[in-house]
Design a protein around this nucleic acid. Structure first.
Length: 563
RNA sequence: CGGGGUGUAGCGCAGCCUGGUAGCGCGCUGCGUUCGGGACGCAGAAGCCGCGAGUUCAAAUCUCGCCACCCCGACCA
């Protein structure tokens, strides 16, 4: 059920998206909603099984929570409101509110607070495979970002930080093994914890052009971080003394860094960029060198807000700033001075129309809180070594969060400790989206003819092509090979369609099953069948009598490499 | 949410500007030929031209509204 397509819809943009559709892995039902076709569903189940085995290996216990979840639990942590923009919500006939689970922390914590009474029950790791509903504003690239997907989400519960640390790193190891087994070259990077609370988080990123995240990597050491969190070593320039106090210069109509560069003939880095933001009830000025961009995630974290908003008209007036000519000198606002601003004179806005100040020296002419709120960029210095940083794109295939007591505190999750006191359940959570993992495998394992599945997640292990089907000798031999392989535990797809060799081979390449086995009239004359690994071009002819044994050996050897 | 684009047969597209019987390729069905890299011939089936209004003798085509999908950005455990 499900046919291969010679052409993919033009709106499928990434190579993997096109191949996913052409190879009949899944079909769209609506934006970001996909049906797994039989071929793709086999892949999804294999990914699940790898994850299941690796969770079990570290002591995880599989359970299953519902998809439809009452509002009350989400209200305990405030996420009923904070997730509103991305949540699918519904009501029952009695008018009670529910959320299609966006994730399951609240629900697991609810059960944990009831099930776990004593430190003797800890630690514990539970996990499940369950649908998540997320009303993403922009689903994309096939299965890469969808609105409903099965996640393997695991939750660790420990009695203290040390225990949580052990669980966290056990999951980190399980993730590394899981991705390796499915053929994904994932690196773990430090990440921002977002609006989740908690202090430590890692993302597993597969470097790929189709990725949505920007990852910062060091060329020399193992430093790597998400752009949202990445820092750099600020290399101070030589201190430059100002040859005098700030002086006002006329800059009529020059309201942007680019125009300042052109007007004054100095590089962007010679200017100070001052952005007025609104945080809570106050106005905050963020001061950066003209050649640096602000990092919104860092600002959100620093300011303790969910959203960074630019200041409005009234804010400019209150702070004494003039749009286009804002500068830190004399500004009535909390000033955040980015760490990349150096100890030397700059040109900054004069807080007066059509004017800037030359020779403004941070610390002398204005004060501010030092904070790292800028974007790292290509070529910056590594914060950990002498290397330089580069920025690449990545697909976030998994993430792990160390929450600590955050959820227990909000939901009353405590246990009775050895010393007789009540202590909070220490919590961590760990997620991998199945469909994204499958799409990422396709994005990173294909050639111009089709998918090249790693055997661990391939829908089948051997693809038997018989041709022509009208040759009874060929058909009998092919069916014999199929039966023998299946008897050996090899998963076989048998192409018994009455199609031309070209069609069958093209489909075999497209679907990308690791071993193609051709049983043909030509081969029968020589008493051989042909075996070709998908990733190779050369074929091997083996005596028909030995074919099943030979192929089973190849399959087992391939499996062993990914176990 | 901002910007851009696209909706015509299962898929890929033309037709729209300049209103007048809805087309092409692939795929699909039947028959025959062919049979190791997307074969060939003949004969067929298949379309609320995204939806709704409006203009007109007449709308795939013009106007207005709506819906859906895709891309970029914003957003995003």
């Amino acid at each position: 059920f499900g046919r291969t397509l010679r052409e993919a819809p033009t709106d499928a943009q990434t190579p993997g998206h096109r191949l996913m559709l052409r190879a009949a892995i899944a079909r769209p039902l609506a934006a970001g909603l996909y049906t797994w076709l039989p071929l793709g569903f086999r892949v999804a189940r294999k990914v699940e099984q790898i994850l299941r085995e690796e969770q079990d290996r570290i002591g995880g216990q599989e359970l299953r929570l519902p998809v439809i979840t009452p509002a009350e639990y989400w209200k305990e942590t405030g996420r009923w409101d904070s997730l509103e923009p991305v949540a699918f919500r519904t009501r029952d006939h009695g008018g009670h509110e529910y959320m299609i689970a966006y994730t399951h922390e609240e629900l697991v914590m609810h059960h944990a607070r009831n099930e776990i009474q004593s430190y003797r029950q800890l630690p514990a790791i539970v996990y499940h495979f369950q649908e998540k509903g997320r009303d993403e504003a922009r689903p994309r690239a096939g299965l890469l970002r969808v609105r409903e997907f099965v996640m393997k989400d695991a939750y660790s519960i420990d009695k203290d930080w040390d225990g949580l640390d052990r669980s966290y790193w056990a999951e980190h190891g399980a993730y590394a093994r899981s991705f390796e087994r499915m053929g994904l070259d994932a690196v773990s990077v430090e990440s921002d914890t977002g609006n989740m609370g908690g202090d430590v988080a890692h993302e597993f990123q597969v470097l790929s052009e189709v990725g949505e995240d920007r990852i910062v990597l060091c060329s020399a050491c193992d430093y790597r971080a998400n752009m949202e969190k990445a820092t750099r070593r600020v290399v101070p320039g030589a201190a430059v003394a100002a040859d005098g106090a700030p002086t006002r210069i006329a800059t009529p109509g020059v309201t942007t860094i680019e125009r300042l560069e052109a007007t004054l003939g100095r590089p962007a880095g010679a200017f100070l960029k001052t952005m007025l933001l609104r945080a809570g009830d106050g106005v905050v000025a963020v001061v950066l060198p003209g050649d640096r961009e602000a990092n919104e995630a860092k600002l959100r974290k620093l300011l303790g807000v969910n959203e960074v908003k630019f200041a409005g008209e009234g804010d400019f007036a209150a702070a004494g700033g003039v749009a286009g000519f804002v500068g830190p000198v004399g500004l009535k606002a909390r000033v955040i001075l980015d760490t990349s601003v150096e100890d030397r004179p700059y040109v900054a806005g004069a807080n007066a129309k059509d004017a800037h100040l030359d020779r403004v020296v941070p610390g002398r002419d204005f004060q501010g809180e030092r904070a790292d709120v800028h974007d790292v960029r290509d070529g910056d210095a590594c914060p950990k070594c002498d290397g330089t940083l580069r920025i690449v794109r990545g697909v976030e295939v998994g993430n792990i969060f160390k929450f600590g007591p955050y959820y227990a505190d909000k939901m009353g999750g405590t246990y009775l400790a050895e010393d007789g006191t009540r202590k909070p359940l220490m919590f961590g959570s760990y997620g991998i989206g199945i469909s994204r993992a499958v799409q990422t495998v396709i994005e990173t394992h294909h050639d111009d003819r089709g998918i090249v599945w790693p055997i661990s997640v391939a829908p089948f292990e051997a693809h038997v092509v018989a041709l022509p089907m009208k040759d009874a000798v060929v058909v009998a031999a092919a069916e014999r090979v199929v039966a023998d392989l299946e008897a050996q535990g090899v998963e076989v797809l048998y192409d018994d369609r009455d199609e031309s060799a070209g069609v069958k081979f093209a489909d075999a390449d497209l679907i990308g099953i690791p071993f193609r086995v051709t049983v043909s009239a030509r081969g029968m004359k020589a008493g051989t069948v042909e075996v070709k690994p998908r990733e190779r071009t050369e074929v091997e002819n083996v005596p028909a009598a030995d074919a099943a044994e030979r192929i089973t050996g190849l399959v087992r050897a391939a499996r062993a490499k990914l176990q």
